[in-house]
Simulated scan of single mutants.
Amino acid sequence: MKTVYVPILKAKAGELSALMHLKGAAIEHVLPWFDISPINDDKLEKLSSQLFPPIEAYLSGVAAEISTVWKNRKILLDMPKWATNAQAEGGEHVLPFLRNELASFRVSADLVVDYVRWDDPVYANALRGAGVTGGCDFALRLVMDSDTVEELSEEELVLERLTDIADTLDFDPALVMVMIDFGDISNEKHTVPDLVSKSERAIDLLSRAGFKIFRLAGCSLPAFISQSIKTQNSTGLVVRKEMEAWRILIVQPGLDSLGFSDYGIRGPNAKETGGASNANGKIRYTIDREIFIARGYPLTEGLKGAQHQELARLVIKSGHWVDEKFSWGDREILRCSEGEFSGSSSDWIAIDTNHHIHSVVREVIEYRDLVAAKAARQQVKI
């Protein structure tokens, strides 16, 4: 089936559980893009006390965990927070090493090429080697930070680098997906019109380099929920600016095939490790164009994790809840509201992400159908 949605996810317990519980059309229309977290000091110390090389053991473990939920399927593999020259103990670059580990667990991985990181010859050679010896396919990631946006004005330089990437990796640009990635756009300086204009500029330039398959990505959720919902024990809505920009872009001539991506319910700058000392109880419930958030209070206080039961009841009473049949995540929200469990932070990442994926797949399909129907009516009138 055609890929409808490419979520950029951590290969963590919460996100993996969300994928494991996908059902119906969602699982067939989703292609996960895994952003693999670097090994942290605690994990490194623990693995160093064992017999196996710690980095290789860590990456092999990541591959095994992904395979438990996505065996015999394809993923996109990205390691943007690792050093461009990061190697496993045997001297192999971590990207092809992990790709080979995934293949051994029957997970097919296309490697992500980072346009910004291409300057490092070690990085470029590792990707080239993976293409030559592993026969892998690639996707291109264009990080739309301020430096990259400024560089887009130097068109000849950009076109030269894009040509070098395609020639070095020996791929046809027309067959390679480009992720136009705005990352964290929670700040008010990131407006929808700005996202649209920058996307148009990037797509125009990439098209001139022969690329034809584009996706727009961004995340409107900040690193900390308190930045969106200021008051404890309250609810609110966050506009999904990445979705608004995508809706505007796909109705423009030549952009009807533009794909949609985002970061699920955990943004690119969200904290990945640590205890619950500063974490608030929360449920992030995706709806069309927005995310409804029920925020509680620190998980170390009061009812601690049990506060999620009241938060679940708030979601159900909000008028936004679909029903328990919509997704596994929705069923878990109902179960929690009835006092059957409370759940940890990781559990709620799983629940919220699972609902989010189902919701986005439905929203994208329905909006595309609406746009196509409108275009058909206009053709009839002509």
Rank of each mutant, 00 (worst) to 15 (best):
Met1Pro: 14
Met1Asp: 11
Thr3Ser: 05
Pro7Met: 05
Ala13Asn: 12
Ala13Arg: 12
Ser17Thr: 15
Met20Ile: 13
Leu22Cys: 11
Leu22Ser: 04
Trp33His: 06
Trp33Asp: 04
Phe34Ser: 09
Pro38Ile: 04
Asn40Ser: 01
Lys46Gln: 12
Lys46Glu: 11
Ser48Asn: 03
Gln50Arg: 04
Leu51Ser: 12
Ile55Val: 13
Ile55Trp: 08
Ala57Thr: 12
Leu59Gln: 01
Ala64Lys: 04
Ser67Arg: 02
Thr68Pro: 10
Val69Ile: 12
Lys71Met: 01
Asn72Glu: 07
Arg73Leu: 01
Lys74Gly: 10
Ile75Lys: 04
Leu77Met: 02
Pro80Ile: 06
Lys81Asn: 05
Ala86His: 08
Gln87Ile: 15
Pro96His: 09
Leu102Asp: 08
Leu102Tyr: 14
Leu102Thr: 13
Tyr115Val: 15
Trp118Gly: 15
Pro121Gly: 00
Ala124Lys: 14
Gly129Asn: 05
Ala130Gln: 07
Gly131Asp: 02
Val132His: 07
Gly135Met: 04
Asp137Ser: 07
Ala139Tyr: 13
Val143Met: 14
Ser146Asp: 08
Glu151Phe: 10
Leu152Cys: 05
Leu152Ala: 11
Ser153Thr: 15
Glu154Ala: 15
Glu156Cys: 13
Leu157Met: 10
Val158Asn: 07
Thr163Gln: 11
Asp164Tyr: 02
Val176Ser: 04
Met177Ala: 15
Gly183His: 03
Ile185Gly: 03
His190Lys: 00
Pro193Thr: 13
Pro193Cys: 10
Asp194His: 06
Leu195Trp: 00
Val196Pro: 03
Ser197Trp: 14
Lys198Ala: 03
Ser199Lys: 00
Asp204Leu: 12
Leu205Asn: 00
Phe211Arg: 01
Phe211Val: 12
Arg215Trp: 01
Ala217Tyr: 01
Gly218Gln: 01
Gly218Trp: 02
Ala223Pro: 00
Ser226Gly: 09
Gln227Val: 03
Gln232Pro: 10
Val238Thr: 02
Met243Gly: 05
Gly254Ile: 00
Asp256Arg: 08
Gly264Tyr: 00
Ile265Thr: 03
Ile265Gly: 03
Asn269Gln: 06
Ala270Arg: 00
Ala270Ile: 02
Thr273Arg: 15
Thr273Pro: 01
Gly275Ala: 05
Ser277Phe: 12
Asn280Tyr: 09
Lys282Asn: 07
Arg284Tyr: 15
Arg289His: 08
Tyr297Thr: 12
Pro298Ala: 09
Pro298Asp: 06
Leu299Arg: 08
Gly302Asp: 08
Leu303Met: 05
His308Glu: 07
Gln309His: 02
Glu310Pro: 02
Leu314Asn: 09
Val315Asp: 07
His320Ala: 09
Trp321Glu: 02
Lys325Gly: 11
Trp328Arg: 05
Gly329Gln: 01
Ile333Trp: 09
Ser337Trp: 09
Ser337Arg: 08
Ser345Leu: 13
Ile349Leu: 08
Asn354Ile: 14
His355Pro: 03
His356Glu: 06
Val361Tyr: 00
Leu370Gln: 11
Ala373Gln: 14
Ala376Asn: 14
Arg377Lys: 03
Arg377Val: 13
Lys381Asp: 10
